[in-house]
Design a protein around this nucleic acid. Structure first.
Lengths: 338, 338
DNA sequence: TTGTATGCGTTATCAC
DNA sequence: GTGATAACGCATACAA
């Protein structure tokens, strides 16, 4: 039982107490073979008597190379999407006897850079990043040094690296076609900031599919800049009050969907406007919201698997694309009206 | 620019290249005073030329004491409640120049014990734990050694330690009184497993308030064992189909609320049953669900503040209790019927 | 203003 | 089977 102020028991202390050398004590405590059973017992007894607990910091240093830590730079850990990612990553980390350091960069490239630097200083064994807009070329050296860096949800810019994304275009295509099949032509697309890669992908797909369907000039149905639910609510409200109100809304992410739901709830006749949301969310079934869904936990898992595999700089960067799936629940099947 | 296989540049390397001693290089890179500007420049130049990045593992070890890591043992990081906690904790960690290690114990005491051990091996500077049921007496030694261990959401068992909880009893009291004020007497209380401390607190408060209100024998309105939304749904459905259906349901946590909503949606006349949920949740406003709310991010912050302050074993354990607040949104104001 | 020497608590190499 | 002894990369009294 240690006392405050007193140093913590060390391996050397255990060895001394057991009357063996450091190396032998190390052998026993790491379960290595070639130790006499009697010695083993003595060392174990000494360890428990002293309340010994190995120092993983020292172990990581002595072992050289990377620490048994995995880094995750998210946009905001309180966002369910990121915590689902974190959940998947953590499981894989655990399977590899590693711990997960989670950080939030709040979509700020400078903060992301700083966090990246800090995590690399900790000599993380791998790094999973949801990249904010910004240049990632600085990581090239680190990659070359063998640290696996994996980008998730969005690709890096200025750098070839392993990436895990979802099939954004396919998801949007399914959503637009679904609405079109139900008779909609005045379909609005409301999303986050155009600086965000996923927005641009989804917007491009939206415009492409609208054009394919003979629904030209869809640019006028696009609204961007909704970074949170409140802004999304305003944008959708303005659309509904505008001169040419849409009969359907395609929300680009979960926060936009939340804002859109509120706007539809406020507006007269809002319950007749169709809605499809990108990203599934809790209670979407109760609300009856049709969504484009995918498995965020699996996404984290896949990213972590890449991030726990030693990086081979000579191999080409890998890209994993996960499928999306449209789940009809009601709001997406409303017929156009007005 | 480092190359794979090549060792990473070290402080010694920088010093050598700059033609100064290790200590001087250290001074410059740590921004310490008393170095000639010219020397400073040379060291900086050498560092950038070599692509030097300090090794935080080595620094932590050399400095002795704890590492600049904070540990968080949650039930399940994918649960919005825990990720809100994590968010609050991370901010405080950052303010203290520390990183956060997040782990999930899935309410398994054995796993919690293991994780605790692992984090202590990493020599975390502090530990925030949402304790599963189990004994925490083993941590006494660690506390005595000065590591701040803080329990959040639930107190430890068998150990006096800093704790951050919410006013569970006050929250339940407000909810039951609210329903009573709206004319309800057949109020069901549906919750998680009785092994969970919060359940017991809330259940006890429920029974006490019911008795105060002259509503005796409320035990028959208690249902437990709903650890997830699916189980909650079944329990509520059974209640509604039973011989004495309640006119109001008090859901003990967010998962139970989700299940209850689904059950009410299924049952004929379910839209007339009142509902109050403990824990606020996203889109509760859209769904119009009355809840007992509190600030989980703040909870994490308070816990982290305690966990980043050196523990004084001679001081008595502190308990922080955060207030709850009832937010009427519709489901809690339905009059009794039937 | 700059440098020397030693310690941090492990792991790992090799010899015995 | 067991044990000296040297890394690991940095911090820090202490000296110059």
């Amino acid at each position: 039982m240690s006392v405050q102020g007193a140093r913590r028991p060390t391996l050397a202390g255990v060895a001394e107490r057991a009357g063996v050398s450091l190396k032998t004590a190390s052998r026993v405590l790491n379960g290595e073979p070639n130790v006499a059973e009697a010695t083993r017992e003595r060392v174990r007894a000494a360890a428990t008597a002293l309340g010994f607990r190995r120092n993983a910091v020292a172990a990581d240093l002595a072992r050289g190379g990377a620490s048994r830590l995995l880094g995750f730079i998210s946009g905001d850990i309180a966002n369910p999407f990121y915590s689902a990612l974190a959940s998947g990553i953590e499981r894989v980390a655990r399977d590899n006897d590693m711990h997960l350091i989670t950080t939030s960069c709040e979509e700020d490239p400078e903060r992301e850079r700083l966090l990246t630097e800090e995590l690399l200083e900790r000599r993380v064994g791998g790094l999973v990043v949801t990249p904010a807009t910004g240049d990632h070329a600085l990581l090239a050296g680190e990659l070359a040094a063998g640290t696996p860096v994996v980008f998730v949800d969005r690709p890096a810019s200025g750098l070839e690296a392993d990436t895990v994304v979802i099939d954004n275009r396919g998801g949007i295509r399914a959503a637009v076609r679904h609405l079109s099949d139900h008779g909609h032509r005045r379909i609005a697309f409301v999303g986050d900031n155009p600086e965000v890669w996923t927005f641009r992908e989804r917007q491009a797909a939206f415009l492409a599919v609208m054009a394919e369907l003979g629904n030209e000039g869809a640019e006028r149905w696009v609204r961007s800049g909704a970074h949170d639910a409140g802004e999304a609510r305003s944008l959708v409200a303005a659309l509904l009050e505008g001169p040419e109100p849409p009969t359907a809304v395609l929300a680009e992410n979960n926060r936009v969907t939340a804002g859109a739901l509120r706007a539809l709830g406020d507006a007269p006749g809002g319950e007749d406007v169709a809605l499809v949301g990108f990203d599934d969310f809790d209670l979407a079934d109760v609300l009856g919201v049709t969504v484009v869904s995918y498995d965020a936990v699996e996404m984290g898992r896949r990213a972590a698997e890449l991030a726990t595999t030693p990086h081979d700089p000579s191999a080409p960067a890998r890209t994993v694309t996960l499928e999306t799936r449209l789940i009809p629940r009601g709001t997406g099947e409303r017929p156009p009206r007005g």
